[in-house]
Nucleic acid binder design. Structure first.
Lengths: 338, 338
DNA sequence: GTTAGCACTCCCGTAGCCCGAGTGCTAATA
DNA sequence: TATTAGCACTCGGGCTACGGGAGTGCTAAC
């Protein structure tokens, strides 16, 4: 195990297949290269190591990395000062909440020197605070929706017939009266009921409320942000343009990436997915470290880091963990729930 | 001139230095390779062509491209159907105005097969329609600002002392009463005057309005979106990872890119900047095609395309032009000015 | 002014070669 | 029995040499 740890540590640092002599020299294990060679042969047979070719050094296999992550690595490599700095920066991000996810991604990629991935909050579960309806022209209404910790969504509705300003105003007031404390998901249902029960303004009202309800129901689509894609290029395993292209092309498909992050978010805590543990072929040369962030215990999004399987797991696991915690803290506090 | 045009066209298509025989065979100029060779030698002496090395074909120099763009190219290469499709898609983007710039970038990169760049609207000049102030917790106020064609900005203010809900409400109402038809820039001034003249609620009011004014004044920072960065990799001139890294790193610095786009926006119409015409070293292997979009004549942003100097200028110039026009049309219409 | 012919140049891809790092095995040692 | 030293063997990467091909520029003829 000490040898496996040494090999993994060294390979993570250098990206060169590591040989017995190197280990013997750099890591004071108290045994000779020959012994290490014997052990390495055993480790390979057990599936923890691989040899790119005969007479090259060994590199960890996915199984090797898995064991390293679960048992061997020293998980507290993020320095206290870095962690503190991260927390500070997250707290300082409060100026505009939508930008928080952007900034979180940027910060994470800066800190880890890998590509960062963030899934923006799913707003269907958050509590709606305020709805503002505003006329653009006679066939377009702007809907601005403010949900609990201060998220702002907006969209334009195309109305079937000219909008009456007074009616819209009245509708807006009624909506705001009722929505206090309900989730967006719940709101769309309430709206529909309202429509049936109190059809106050005739046909226009009906149609418009219906439109609004449908529009709001759709608005919960996941948004994903990438940052630090450049760091991919710094990895020797991505010296090949075609490989980067394949991976980046995959990561930039928002929906598939969202699906992956969504799946990773099913278990709480920091999650590590290594190489072929990914179902998607494009990701099988990569590892991903993710963690969920939440408001008062309700999971609302995911942050993560993507890199080669030769990832600095210790550092990244720590950084991602701290980031998710900090985000959760700030959001929870801002939302007033403690 | 016919020879220069043929060489440029061919090089744009194939990315291979083009020789006299190729021209003679593929383009029916009615002259033999030998004649073409003589002319090519002259064109090189005049600075329109370059030779990567003796016994390679010729490629256009920056000066050659410039002449091609200004005099030779056939500017109407975007098919009528493509142009129509682009217009349609822009019109269909009206659902959420902030996403328009994103989508515009995506659409442009899809259509041209190059990397697209979009600078989001500068909102300081647009007319403010509505301000909404909302309490998050006792020290945080959410400000949502809706400006003319339906742009929504929001930010969180950290107040120096606990916020009083009634005061905030009153302030909000007063603000909304006054802001009709004023630009954001004008609004910040009006606010400050208001502060001086009618200090109604004592110290809190003063401080808060001041904070709000300063915050709004800052909010006009440029936002830039990239899309289709992957297309860079498809260009043979960017087979080299280091080169891509350099360029992408440069493009992803929002502020410098914004500065370039800003500068390009100083002249109206479609603007072409070729290779060393750029001041920035990182861009000197690239060309950029930009155009401004506007609301009722007021320029509010820039769209553009970035690629190697071997750019399909005819197609890109046309696409960028149509895109800028379509955006302007839709935004102008939506804002009610005709 | 245009063209054919020809010698010359230079890049690029291929093949062959050497070197070095690393292994696995065997025999010796504690 | 575990560890170590020694040694033959392997294999990939980098270097060099080489030939082919595309293209040029020049000269002379039309």
């Amino acid at each position: 195990m000490r040898i496996l740890r040494a090999i993994t540590d060294d390979y993570i640092q250098t990206a060169d297949p590591v040989g017995s002599r190197t280990i013997a020299r750099k890591y004071a294990l108290g045994v000779s290269p020959a012994t290490i060679r014997n052990e390495m042969a055993d480790l390979e047979e057990l599936g923890y190591l691989e040899q790119p070719h005969t007479s090259a050094g060994r590199i960890p296999s996915d199984k090797g990395y898995r064991f390293y992550v679960d048992e061997l690595m020293d998980p507290e490599q993020l320095s206290a000062s870095d962690a503190a700095r991260l927390r500070e920066e997250v707290v300082a991000m409060q100026r505009a909440i939508e930008q928080m996810v952007h900034r979180a991604a940027r910060l994470l990629s800066l800190l880890t020197q890998y590509t960062a991935v963030v899934m923006a909050p799913r707003l269907t579960e958050t509590v709606v605070k305020h709805i503002h309806l505003s006329i653009l022209d006679e066939f377009h209404v702007l809907v601005v929706l403010v949900s609990e910790p201060g998220f702002v969504q907006n969209q334009i509705l195309q109305t079937p017939r000219p909008v009456d300003a007074a009616e819209l105003d009245l509708l807006s007031r009624r909506l705001n009266e009722r929505l206090v404390g309900t989730s967006l998901r719940h709101l769309t249902r309430t709206l529909l009921e309202q429509l049936r029960q109190e059809s106050l303004f005739g046909a226009f009202h009906d149609e418009f409320v219906d439109l609004l309800a449908r529009s709001l129901a759709q608005s919960g689509t996941e948004k994903v942000y990438l940052d630090g894609t450049l760091h991919l290029f710094e990895q020797p395993e991505f010296r090949d343009v075609d490989r980067v292209k394949l991976l980046l092309g995959f990561l930039e498909q928002d929906d598939t990436l969202a699906a992956i992050l969504f799946q990773a978010a099913r278990r709480s805590g920091v999650q590590v997915t290594i190489g072929h543990e990914h179902e998607e072929e494009e990701m099988q040369e990569c590892s991903m470290v993710t963690a969920t962030y939440s408001i008062g215990g309700d999971v609302i999004g995911t942050v993560g880091v993507v890199g080669p399987t030769r990832l600095d797991y210790a550092k990244v696991v720590s950084a991602v963990g701290v980031m998710a915690e900090s985000l959760s803290e700030v959001l929870t506090q801002l939302s007033g729930r403690r």
